[in-house]
Design a protein around this nucleic acid. Sequence first.
RNA 1: GCCGCGAUGGCGGAAUUGGUAGACGCGCGAGACUUAAAAUCUCGUUCUAGCAAUAGAGUGUGGGUUCGAUUCCCACCCGCGGCACCA
Length: 831
Amino acid sequence: MAGGIYNHTEIEEKWQQVWASLRLFQDTQQLKAQQKEFLLFAFAYPSGSGLHVGHVESKTALDIKARFSRMNGKNVYFPVGWDAFGLPAENYAIKTGIHPVETTKAAINTFRQQIQRLGISYDWANETATNHPDYYRWTQWLFLQLYKKGLAYQGLGMVNWCPSCQTVLANEQVVNGKCERCDSLVEQRDLKQWYFKITEYKDELLTGLDDVDWPEPTRQQQRNWIGKAKGLAIDFSLEETGQKMTVWTKFWETVFGVTFVVIAPEAFNKMNLLEKVSVDRRAEVEKYLETAKHKTEEERRIGEKDKTGVLTGLTVINPVNGSKVPLFIADYVLMGVGTAVVMGVPAHDERDFAFAKKYNLPIKQVVTYTDQALDQAVRNGDQAVEAPGLLVNSGVFDGQEAWGDGKQAMADWMIKEGFADWQTTYKLRDWLISRQRYWGAPIPVVYDPEGQPHPVKEEHLPWVLPVDVDFKPTGESPLKSSKEFIERTERLYGVGWRPEFDTMDTFVDSSWYFLRYCDSRNKEKFADEQKLAHWLPVDLYLIGPEHIVLHLLYSRFFTKFLRDEGYLKVDEPFAKMRHQGMILGPDGKKMSKSKGNVINPDEIVEEFGADTLRVYEMFMGPLETDKPWDPRAVAGVYRFLRRVHGLVLDNKQQLQHHLDLKSSLPLQRKLHQTIRKATFNIPQLKFNTVISTMMELTNLWEEEKKTAGFLSNEDLLSFILLLAPFAPFLTEELYSLCFSGQEKNDEYRGVHVQSWPIFDPVLAQEENVNFAVQVNGKIRAQMQVEAGQAGEKDFVLKKAKELAEVKLWLEGKAIVKEIFVPGKIVSFVVR
RNA sequence: GCCGCGAUGGCGGAAUUGGUAGACGCGCGAGACUUAAAAUCUCGUUCUAGCAAUAGAGUGUGGGUUCGAUUCCCACCCGCGGCACCA
């Protein structure tokens, strides 16, 4: 072959070194006049097992975007960093005794090498890691700012406790009553913990979703998580004391059907109602309250079908009709939803029905249904029905539509009468950030000898994580074992003072990193205001769907808070977001060591090179879908790159022999079509179709070559530039061989700082346009029309009718309708 | 149960968003080169019938709108993800 063989290893190792010594695309944080583009990849946890093929997909996708944007003259910032605190390193330390500082460092080094080997054009000069004191001093600073504004507070309450991880978990980290990380059953414990008051921003966290370019399902999921629901708070009253007993409901039109009222155990305690319970019932009520308190999440879940509760003996008065109904305590009523008091309407609510059956309570129908059998079932108390119907047994509202007009009328009436008002409830809870773990940022709080908390002074930041710590889990925070930590606290704050021994949830670290990226080496501030104003918001955030709820919500909360503090000018941190799918094993299942279907990117790089790995992963399918790995298709991509290598070098040789070589017309046309496709599809992250078009081009090139058809010097350059973002090593090699822009001691002039080629719409146009001719909706013929005449309706229709195949179908029929779509189709409707 | 997503050849996927379904790649079949194999190259490859031209069917299922539907509407089936005693 003309240009020798494609030695990917040699080429890639060579250029990796050249780029590194040139410091290509490093130190790119400076403000420039050009349009900025801030590209962000989800903060990665540097796990001990190294880079995964899934990482390669999203990093490559953003890298292509970064390179494309640079070639189009944008000032691109593409930083990298590590979400380096966290449980795996600590658990490993417990097992092996090796300090997390060591393992984390080693893991980061591995990741860095692997990523550099892939040719990802990250700005390593601004690399950050959350476990560095330079980083976490600002995590702690953020805590202090929240504390000052009362948005970081200490609360006593029931918390989720994982007995295996020996730590508290956020509600979000409990999955099906089990620990997200280790699958142990989660228990409830009463502990004093630090919270961030994210609920302060609940409404804005909701409305802000309207202003961002995110996938709609993601926004919907955030909305669901915040869980805003409008309902009516109706003031029932306690007969014994006259106290208000406000219930909350979305189905207030059934209020005439109330036969009992249920209160959550916690709400019952809060109202101090135990003393009002008669002596003979008190023991039983107390016992119920006590067991409810210690139920685990799992027990509550199992209890779903079997609703437990206890009769208080107290009586509640329904304001709409003065009827007196019993008050129950039951843990199926959740604290924090509405008023934590529920009206029991067993005829029209499944849960109330189950409860009424169990405790033998009356069932009162207040909605009738046209379906006779259904209506009978409700009347007999055999079934609860939650469906639209007509109101009955509801005083003046009888005959009005439940779920319709009657609903509105009833609300208006109750509000006017003064015993009800609108009340909105949210699912979103404050964010519990205390963790009884070692490998995290210490919470910057100290306690005076009386046990009162005080913030650590800002001049004492970073409030350094002590090193003399025993990791062994004891159920208490590992930091308690550090002598240095306590001595430091006493030295700085006085004898008898103690530090907070808990560390922060690692979500705190990883939910503001994009802000630090804007000015990652700043010693005075978390970031300079000017730089923040310049780089924010993030222009494109590529993130896995697993981070949709928590990380995004927290990041948005911090952004809004810091904006209110005057540090930021943006309301939303991530202007545009897209998700990458998962790369599955060749068996179509999620990759896992136990299934033995894990593909190691290092092996692919070794065998086929980083360019092949990159192009293959981009070629697999749409970025956002899950895609199985196909080992054989990798080889197909390798063949493509090898063919490119051969074609370009062959073409170069032709150019040397024929200095004024012009491109063959079909090849030139295809080239311009390819530029057009790439120019439009790369910004949309539709890489798979761009690659297939480039493959079509090389197929044609191969074909043209047989008849001495080649690309001109200029067109050959365009082709190499097109491929450059996808296969940076190979294209750099080809560029240097064909266009040798490399001169020693000179500025870098390689392929990656060239301008993106511009397509010529005239050159991209086909000579002839193909029309399909339909008769009664079926294609009966194909027809070529010169491009210039493809828009002329009469001409094209006439020509179509003259076709022999068409005549056959039109013969003896009357044409009822003629449809003409320029450049596409001609359609006759005949009878 | 609720919310969301998806379904196209043997496989991964294309289809300018109502205009020629199956681009590109993989696999498979046949052939060339070779002592042979690998590699490479050429041709073919949705299904059915036919030597063929061609005809018919076809984008999860059943209906609908339209000259024309993978695309829009209605009802369902299956798979995946999230939430779930939320009143």
